[in-house]
Design a protein around this nucleic acid. Sequence first.
DNA 1: CATGAATGAGACTTCATTCAT
DNA 2: CATGAATGAAGTCTCATTCAT
Lengths: 213, 213, 213, 213
Amino acid sequence: MLPNTEHDGQSRSFIEEARRAQIVTAAVETIAEVGYHRASMGRIGARAGISRGLISYHFAGKSELIAQVVTTVYTDVAAFMTPMIDAETTYAGELRAYIRSNLEYMRAHPARMVALVEILTSGGLADLPEADPDAFDRQLREPLEQLFEAGQASGEFRDFDVTVMARIVRGVIDAVPTALSRDPDLDIDCHLREITTALDLATRPVPSTPEQT
Amino acid sequence: MLPNTEHDGQSRSFIEEARRAQIVTAAVETIAEVGYHRASMGRIGARAGISRGLISYHFAGKSELIAQVVTTVYTDVAAFMTPMIDAETTYAGELRAYIRSNLEYMRAHPARMVALVEILTSGGLADLPEADPDAFDRQLREPLEQLFEAGQASGEFRDFDVTVMARIVRGVIDAVPTALSRDPDLDIDCHLREITTALDLATRPVPSTPEQT
Amino acid sequence: MLPNTEHDGQSRSFIEEARRAQIVTAAVETIAEVGYHRASMGRIGARAGISRGLISYHFAGKSELIAQVVTTVYTDVAAFMTPMIDAETTYAGELRAYIRSNLEYMRAHPARMVALVEILTSGGLADLPEADPDAFDRQLREPLEQLFEAGQASGEFRDFDVTVMARIVRGVIDAVPTALSRDPDLDIDCHLREITTALDLATRPVPSTPEQT
Amino acid sequence: MLPNTEHDGQSRSFIEEARRAQIVTAAVETIAEVGYHRASMGRIGARAGISRGLISYHFAGKSELIAQVVTTVYTDVAAFMTPMIDAETTYAGELRAYIRSNLEYMRAHPARMVALVEILTSGGLADLPEADPDAFDRQLREPLEQLFEAGQASGEFRDFDVTVMARIVRGVIDAVPTALSRDPDLDIDCHLREITTALDLATRPVPSTPEQT
DNA sequence: CATGAATGAGACTTCATTCAT
DNA sequence: CATGAATGAAGTCTCATTCAT
């Protein structure tokens, strides 16, 4: 689904991987700083301290570079979040850990998160000929949907449409990087607390009190 | 020299207004379809069936066109939502009406909403010299913040940070156009129902048996 | 040589002549104010308070309009200068009158003069397909050359190359509008006095004092 | 990103300098041939045998290219004239050397001189954001004004307004490139002789028999 | 007579990409 | 491996000109 990290199945030399990583880092920082559609290859190269041509040498094109950025950040986020989620013993706890770990990642690597959201919301994926935005969407929602289904079965969550609730959660979380990019001093703790509480209330079983019209 | 720089909406000819409206419509559709940064004046003109030059004839530049699109859609959305919200008698009802009217507007004019979100998230506002993204953000959150403050005072809402909750609401709602642009057959009723319920639960006062960790 | 003032030999209606004169005036003022290459038909029309189209209706194209401006101003200058020159009784007096009348015209109609020089120095003539810059040059020098030849024959002027001296005189005079366009408060009296003296000394017979090496 | 914005003439590669020089030369020739406002980057590139984009690669924009042309030619002219002027021992001699060296430069590099005058008279400087036409004017007149003041103090020149006389001298000299561009076979020797004599007569002290009206 | 809508050419600039060195 | 020169496409904007009303 996502572009391969390996070229023709052959592993890359150490120096090549280092260069690619350096370029990806420069791309992340550039996109986070000036926005996706102003992050030209020239600007990315300038930030990395290398020439335009070298980027083209290491990446088949801008598409591949952007795809690599997405893959790298996404993989990194997952590697950061997964253990924190798995450490939980309840589904509600997992949801809270999902939110917490995601926002903690933003605090630790704001540029990566801002860049990722920039790419996803600025049509960066549309520039990838082979990438399927739908598939990417689904891939993002899937862990949440499974979490919700399991939690509903166990009675920890009330009965709701898991797909829509997954979109709700992603929507709430994805709004943070945007706010973060506009105000770097954003109070993440406050957001973490409020978002966790709000989504906890939105997903927990409703007490027997009659619902308001 | 050009009509648009002289009068500010006061005395444009009928035919000019019609053309401007047509161009704005074409811009909306184009942006919704191919994304903001691929919606060139050429493509917009092609969709409108007119030449590139004619757009420049009616709009001082791309900036003015985009600004007009934002203004038009935003005004239209507000005109659609306001009466529905004002018809409510409770703050919780107003929040539900806010969500409902916003999503109903999306159902009625999906392209407009997609285009608006595209512009706002793709740095389109950054291309407008005078526009302040922060100010626009605040403008979007303000009605919600005021609604929440009033509702908290009346006891209809629990105690939460109104700014963060406003961002949550906008985040949830703004995720819909993106989903809508990827799946035009999206079940809006389902989303409406689920989002309304979720945000209702997230904002209403918590019953006396707290179970939060 | 110069573009015809009449169209196909047929005389124009009164109203048409009035419009043409109005447009020429607007063109003169526009060129004097913003320079030749920024004086678009649109700007000229705006200053005249009429539409772009109307200019095209009255003039075959921008070329004809510019040609008309040149012709009009040149004719006007000549009509102003000729009587003042003819009133003189000596050739040296005629030269002084030539300079004086030319600078007095600049004082009376600075815009016209600035516009004319703008056109001549900004390649405006090159835009006229049929106009021959050489011929125009010759036409400007001819009266001076004849004046010099007559004055040399009568002994009022020393022996010099009349063509070069004509270029010198035009060069000195043509430098004034440029200075005038940069400083509208230029002291024309001072320039008139100094230029007259300088050219008088440059053309009068040299006393028997041995020339300096 | 672009080499030219970073270092100011300090560390450009040899090949880059060569290209820049080639482009400047092509610009000079193009401007001299078709005039300033018709010398598009396309035409300049065509004459240099390179693509439009390459000019943008080496120069930040047309402004910088034109500025470079002005600087190059102006520096070159000064380097050519200064030693010839400094070799003189009298102020009158310096004035003659000023004229002579300037016209000799025109003979050696007619295109450069024509191009420079084209730019200066066609509003080319107005296209340069930072350039102040007034300052440039003053810069051109200043050496002459100082020369005149010194010469007047020493009694080699008569009493006249040094600013106006400087304008006279520049006006006379600047008329030559225009004539040269219309007739490449212009007799420069003749112009040199006549102009030198005329300005010599115009500035030297007047013998005791004034006959001015 | 006059307008203003409309077109299309041309200009400057940015950028991804290719390639010789 | 790496550079930087070079290209060409695409985009925005200006402008002279045409034409229906």
